[in-house]
Structures are given as C-alpha cells and as structure tokens.
Design a protein around this nucleic acid. Structure first.
Lengths: 145, 145
DNA sequence: GCAAACCCCACTAAATTGCTAGGATTTCCA
DNA sequence: TGGAAATCCTAGCAATTTAGTGGGGTTTGC
C-alpha cells in the first residue's frame, strides 16, 4: 500500500509543467532533466495525462506540453487517479464476475465497510488539494525540505 | 493503490476470531473454512498478526488462536499496518540511503506534501475504526450486503 | 530537408502477490 | 505411550505489476 513512481513522477511533472509552461510548451526531455526521471518512461506517463485531458500537446519542433486547464481546476486526485488507477476502489472479496452476488460468504462485508472509510479519507485528502496549491508549495521551498 | 488479499483476509480473520474465540481458541482450519480462504496462506497472515501481538496462540491439539486484546483496543489500522506494511509511508524520491539529503532535486517535495495529506486521511479513517465496531457491523448483517 | 519534438507499441528484468509444499514441534487425549 | 491435532518455520513458484528500455513512426518549425 504505497505510492508507485507513476504517481510520484506524475505529480512532479505536473508541478513542473505548471511552473514552466505558462509561456510556451515544455518538452519531455526538459522536464525529465529537471526532475531526473527517465524521459522514455515519463513520456508514457504524460501520454496518459494527455489522454485524460489534463495536459495538451503541441507536435513538431519547439513543441511540447502544457496544462490543459488552470492549475486551480486540477486536483492531486485527478492526477493520481489517471496514473495509479482507482484510488482504493471498494471491492468485495466476491470474484466480481457478476454471476455470484457480492456477499455470499459470511461476514466479509467488513472489508467493504473498512474500505469505504479509507476511500472517503483518501478522496477528501487528494480532491481538495489543487495543483495550484502544490505549485505554490513548491515555489516556496528553494532547495530546503 | 489497492488493498491486497493480505489486508482483506486479515480483517475477516480478525472479525472471525472476535466472534468465535471468546470461549476457546479457534484453529486456522476452522477460520479458513468459514471464510473460504486457503488455510496455508491464512496461517502465514495470522503468524504475522501473532508476532505483532494482536493475537495469541495455544499450541498442540485443541489449540488455536484468540485475540490478544479486547476488540475495542484493536483498530483496523493496527491490522492493516501489520499485513500491508506502512499505510502510505511518506517517502521522498531520494534514494533514502541516508547519504544524500532528502530533497536535492528541485521541487519534488510536493510528493511528500501530497502524501502527508493522504496519510493523514487514511490514518484518521482506519485508526478510529475498532475491531469491536467491525464485529458489530458483521453481526448486524446476516447474509445481506 | 532535417532536426526537434510528439506518438505508439512491444519487450524485459526485477519485485510483489497469492499462494503451495514439506516439514518440525508441541500438546491433548484415548 | 502413541497418535492426531494443532501451531510454527522456511522455501519455492506461477502470475501479475512495476519501472523502465528500444525501435520505430509522424508532425512541424526553421
């Protein structure tokens, strides 16, 4: 139960875009260099973010990526959902093929109950956190941690 | 970012123990049969829970497991932390070997910031949820979901 | 026209997950 | 006193996921 590099890199890339792409599009290679990430790998992650409509692209030379919306209109949850899949989707222990009802085994709905609670906690946290806020945070700390 | 069977099975096993082990210890095989879980696998999970001090064991014939503490004194978070590892541990993207400071790359502390928020949300959810509450939930629903 | 960039898909080594297997040890009970 | 029932311990293994790498294409500014 941990955040993979997909989510971590994606958050950093989006913050980077927010800071550097206001005037002109930013290339994968420049983000990768600043963030010290494999550019081939980052390319795939940003591809997903583009398909999800969070970033827009400009093809050809001097092209690159830009945020598709205002940073205030993008939440950390939006980014993480794209890259990490459903954030703690609430599933039963049933096989989920639709044939069997969700809960034929005694008392395993506790899982569902717990997960509902956890899910609510996560969603509340990441959906109320805008990219704008993260960018502000990031600008605030120069080198220090 | 999902709950593995470890956490799901562990929660169900603990609820099962809470319901059935008040008088006498309960064997792995009976829990596994009721919960429809591989007993060999469950054995390993309960082993961890024992090492963590959440359940106690009685060896030999007619032995088995019991809750080590009152269900009101065990939280869902306690169980999940044992089986799923740190719940969203807040780590930087630094290599974490202690040699390099946490944040030598520009602005990746946003990861840390986001994760702090998510972590708080999760902890608040699972640590305020007692096993007693889950047992009550479980008893409340007979077959229904 | 050519280089810089995005785009797309396939492959792979390493780690994790969800088990299975084979025992050894302890203890109740007939 | 001899099983049988149970916990304990460690190792292995197939399937999946992760974190990339690789080899191309296509679009576009200069």
């Amino acid at each position: 139960m941990k955040l993979s590099t997909k989510g971590r890199y994606g958050l950093r890339a989006m913050v980077d875009l927010g800071i550097h792409s206001e005037q002109e599009p930013v290339s994968i290679s420049s983000i990768a260099a600043r963030q010290q990430i494999s550019d081939r790998y980052l390319e795939q992650l940003i591809g997903k973010l583009k398909k999800a409509g969070l970033v827009s692209s400009v093809r050809g030379a001097q092209g690159g990526y830009q945020l598709a919306r205002d940073p205030g209109e993008i939440s950390a949850g939006d980014i993480l959902r794209v890259l990490e899949g459903d954030l703690m989707s609430v599933t039963c222990d049933g096989d989920g093929d639709g044939d069997t009802p969700c809960c034929e085994v005694s008392d395993y709905c506790v899982t569902r109950y717990v997960w509902q609670k956890v899910h609510e906690g996560i969603i509340a946290a990441v959906d109320n956190l805008t990219l704008a806020e993260l960018i502000e945070q990031s600008k605030g700390m120069h080198g220090g941690c």
